[in-house]
Design a protein around this nucleic acid. Structure first.
Lengths: 216, 216
DNA sequence: GAAGGAGAGTGATAGCCTCTAACCAACGAG
DNA sequence: CTCGTTGGTTAGAGGCTATCACTCTCCTTC
């Protein structure tokens, strides 16, 4: 959300309404999914009629695209903050998990079911690229220093890191673990620790390898 | 699809129309996503008017639920066939990947973004349970034989197997690997081979461990 | 301070959707 | 042959996206 940083009263009012609309839109999405996002209902909750919202957003798709872009920025900022604070792969993984648990719908809007026709716009692609870049950087930097800055091995390691995190997270958020009687956090922690550098017989791994397996 | 196994002509006709409707529904979903599934458009393509379809399906949600159930059954049958043919975890993983690549929309309907309000009905939950059971069985059976039939360690191993497969698959199907210049199949293969029993310094793993890492 | 213009909001409307109700035609069992 | 079941129709209520023309109200400019 861009906040109310406008200069003229009109700009401030406009930004305020836009922010409130987006806030309510997230509520609606959280309540019934992205497909249930309705400009009409949104406008009603804002105290105006349907067509008025078209002064603020070009249409339903534009609003959704903006929400996705905001979510991207939010996650990027979160991860960048973690990285800037010196968090390693494990720290970033925890930050990612915390963010996803706090905003499941945001996470699914970024990494969930894609809409076949709808290609992600350039701006979004760039931001998601940044997100993976942060993860890859942290992971490559934490691994054994082979050609610092992107050896194939580092890329492979980072990709495995990313996909494992996403595998646990997305299944957990989708509720596929409910009733299985175990703690997803523990699995996530094990997956987080399992990776950077330990495969291919490189040894016990770098970042701890706590309770390697079977510790349930 | 139940096929045309009815006895009376009416039943056969009914089954035929239902199957054709579901086929077209899958086409529509593949073209523009599940949210674009429209009973009206479907009926038009079937050569009838909208309300006529309500003789065959109780409503849009019922049709979608049936499609999901069919997808579940299909995947279950595929995996069961693989398991019956003696495929180990690696074989099942390959079967899963082949199925998902052939029917991405089916995969996402099962494991993609969940609709917040909509709880999966009992029938579906039972079938998805079977799917995971097949994977868990194969994985537990292939691991080192500790308390055959579901030790905590086997469960943990199987869960990691499942989540790793899903992590690579879902990101690949969603197109998040496009333009990264690497082969998802290779990553998937490495993840498939990385798991059953090799962690915690148990050795080189059971099912091959081909090009363990860094081989990109 | 008055005039003009930009911007916010409204009602009307077209066209799509889901789903119900009432009605009609045709098939098949008795 | 008769008549109930079944498949299909049109009509219609209500919701949605989106556009258009219009009003009103501020803010700017003279």
């Amino acid at each position: 959300m861009a906040g109310t940083g406008g200069r003229t009263p009109r700009e401030r009012y406009r930004a305020q309404v836009r922010d409130e609309a987006k806030r309510l839109a997230w509520e609606q999405i959280a309540a019934a999914g992205p497909s249930a996002l309705s400009l009409n209902a949104l406008a009603r909750r804002l105290g105006m009629t349907g067509p008025a919202l078209y002064r603020y957003f070009a249409g339903r798709d534009a609003l959704l695209a903006e929400l996705i872009r905001d979510a991207c920025r939010d996650l990027t900022a979160t991860l960048r903050a973690g990285a800037a604070a010196g968090a390693g792969p494990g720290g970033l993984a925890e930050a990612l998990r915390a963010w996803a648990l706090a905003h499941p719908q945001r996470y699914f809007l970024l990494y969930g079911t894609p809409v076949p026709g709808r290609e992600a716009p350039e701006s979004t692609r760039r931001v998601t690229g940044e997100i993976t870049a942060v993860l890859l950087d942290a992971c490559g930097a934490a691994g054994p220093p082979d050609a610092p800055g992107g050896s194939p091995a580092a890329l492979r390691r980072a990709l495995a890191f990313w996909t494992r995190l996403h595998g646990v997270l997305s299944l957990e958020l989708a509720g596929h673990f409910t009733g299985m009687g175990f703690d997803p956090a523990e699995l996530y922690g094990a997956e987080t620790a399992s990776l950077p550098g330990e495969e291919a017989g490189r040894g016990a791994g770098i970042s701890g390898d706590r309770v390697p397996l079977g510790g349930l």
